[in-house]
Design a protein around this nucleic acid. Structure first.
Length: 429
DNA sequence: GTAGCCTTGACG
DNA sequence: CGTCAAGGCTAC
């Protein structure tokens, strides 16, 4: 590729990167995204060397800030528009109905700060608010909170307390024991309880509507993953020489395995689309990227084990030490950052497989039949999410969709700039 | 730091 | 005076 061609693609790439950055901006990890954006704007060696140790930081917001948000909510629900007291007997209606803690499923001992909770979660919430404590999540902010895991991640426990509707304003500043909870706090209890019931109703309706789709993801996930991973194993320790040709062969094996497996699915007998038509579709590369990322995540689990410097060296080797354009450099950095964000999403086998099919079907020339399949897989994913990670919704589902959008952007960038080899340079020695 | 048990005080 | 939901105490 000549220099002229490279520079002509720059403005196009800039647009794509701007799009990606804009999308980053809109996600939950705001602070981290801003840092990355700065890295992109202002590359220097020091920043580059930090890339593979950067991690998404999930930190509890200031209790004072949360309190302000709660006050704003209170003002809103006190406005005449929505302030009808038709359900004033909420406490009486729901008394004695609780027996499990809404946060961790341990035995609930009563209503505490607006929620049926155990003594443990009650005390935890009180200590957190009284001492204005801040917690950090070392994973992706979606740790399981139940009786046996509740002390493993304070960030996620507190987050769950808030999501489920515990009210910060119910913790007393003056620490006076006894007495009655103020009327405004009671209003918040009532409001949050109603919202939760509405949310549960919506989830249940959706779930019932889609329940029969559950049948479709009863497949042998471990077997297909094992076969796919076997095709990638030679890349560890670089047992095979990476060339244009060998990469093509690996891609072919991965695609072929996936298609053959797809034909065995129950869903194929209902919507029998020939996936082979998608081989000539660039969207296949989405799946290859996702698969390689998933392989690395399962086998290495930590982004630090995939050395930025070594991958960069391999990029030099692959291109036979030819001049690396600033564009290649930036694509590489963006790609590496993207991998690190993937490591923070602990996706499950089912999520991986459903996302793979969705990504393959993301064609621009979508016809009616494959849109049908797309919609069905989308519903299955939704059902699975509601079924398996109800307490993390809608965050988790949105994050997955956002991530698959990002993969499509990256695919577009890699293919238009002939950087399809990049994902294959990530395997550690 | 956690959580089980205890004390407190408004309310019906 | 019993009930409920706040805070307090303390062994672990």
């Amino acid at each position: 590729m000549s220099l002229l061609q490279t520079s002509s693609t720059l403005s196009y790439e800039d647009d794509l990167f701007k799009k990606i950055k804009l999308k980053h901006y809109r996600t939950i990890h705001r602070t981290y995204e801003v840092d990355v954006q700065n890295n992109l704007v202002n590359f220097n060696e020091e920043q580059l060397s930090k890339i593979d140790i950067d991690h998404t930081e999930l930190l509890t917001p200031d209790i004072d800030e949360l309190q302000r948000q709660e006050n704003a909510l209170l003002q809103y629900i006190q406005s005449p528009k929505i302030n009808d007291n038709k359900n004033i007997s909420f406490i009486n209606n729901h008394r004695k109905l609780f027996n499990l803690c809404d946060v961790c499923n341990d035995k609930a001992t009563g209503m505490h700060y607006g929620l049926a909770t155990c003594e443990g979660c009650k005390g935890f919430f009180k200590r957190t608010v009284q001492n204005k404590r801040k917690y950090r999540c070392n994973k992706n902010g979606s740790c399981i909170i139940d009786k046996s895991h509740r002390n493993r991640c304070q960030y996620c426990r507190f987050r769950k307390c808030l999501i489920k509707g515990m009210v910060i304003g119910a913790v007393r500043y003056d620490r006076t024991p006894g007495g009655r909870t103020p009327a405004n706090v009671m209003q918040l209890y009532k409001y949050k309880n109603e919202k939760n019931q509405q949310m549960n109703k919506i989830s249940n309706d959706k779930f019932n509507e889609l329940f029969d789709l559950n049948l479709f993801y009863c497949f042998d996930q471990l077997l297909i993953l094992d076969i796919l991973f076997n095709h990638l194993r030679p890349l560890i320790n670089h047992e095979i020489l990476l060339t244009h040709e060998s990469i093509k062969n690996i891609c072919y094996l991965l695609i072929d395995t996936f298609i053959n497996w797809y034909y065995t699915l129950p869903i194929y007998s209902i919507i029998n689309i020939d996936l082979k038509q998608f081989i000539f579709n660039d969207q296949w590369f989405n799946y290859i990227i996702l698969l390689i990322f998933y392989f690395l995540k399962i086998n290495y689990n930590h982004i630090n084990l995939i050395s930025y410097t070594k991958c960069l060296q391999r990029l030099f080797n692959y291109t036979e030490n030819k001049f690396l354009s600033s564009l290649s450099y930036r694509i590489f950095n963006q790609f590496f950052y993207f991998l690190s964000t993937f490591f923070n999403i602990n996706i499950t086998n089912t999520e991986f497989i459903l996302l793979s099919i969705l990504l393959i079907l993301c064609s621009n020339q979508t016809n009616k039949i494959n849109f049908n399949l797309f919609e069905n897989i989308y519903k299955i994913l939704y059902t699975y999410e509601m079924n398996t990670f109800l307490s993390e919704q809608p965050d988790r589902f949105n994050r997955l969709l956002y991530f698959s959008e990002q993969i499509q952007f990256i695919t577009q960038i890699l293919l238009t700039n002939q950087h399809f080899h990049l994902p294959f340079l990530l395997f550690p020695n």
